[in-house]
């Protein structure tokens, strides 16, 4: 159950109030009719599924009804920042790539009872 900082409400709110809307920064091609089938198919159907930093679009559905972006670590589930539509993320890579990645790997591998 996440706790998410809504950049419009300017406070942390419970996940139940939000809907996830998939990968952020997917721009609709300006001239769809100029796209090849392949390009249009990429826009429609293909999304990243990274292990690590991911930028996601969410909406504060039960709240201010505003869409915004989240930078989230898909392994630790840490939300590293939230930012408004039209803004760019400030976190785009692991703090110190090699160390953090190994540390996370170590932390997450274990015996599930």
């Amino acid at each position: 159950m996440f706790q998410i900082y809504c950049p419009y409400c300017e406070e942390l709110r419970e996940e139940e109030e939000f809907h996830p809307k998939g990968q952020a920064h997917i721009l609709r091609p300006a001239d769809p009719d100029a796209c090849t089938d392949e390009e249009w198919g990429d826009y429609l159907f293909f999304r990243d599924n990274p292990r690590g930093i991911h930028h996601e679009l969410w909406v504060h559905a039960v709240g201010c009804r505003k869409f915004f972006n989240i930078t989230r670590h898909t392994v630790s589930y840490a939300i590293l920042e939230t930012y408004k539509i039209g803004e760019q993320p400030s976190v785009t890579a692991e703090p110190s790539v090699s160390e953090a990645a190994t540390a996370t790997d170590d932390v997450r591998q274990g015996v599930r009872a």
Binding site: A61, R65, K66, I85, G86
Partner: peptide, 13 residues
Amino acid sequence: LEWLELWHQTEWP
């Protein structure tokens, strides 16, 4: 309603 807001807020503000 969310769909309309999505397009208005993210693509055509």
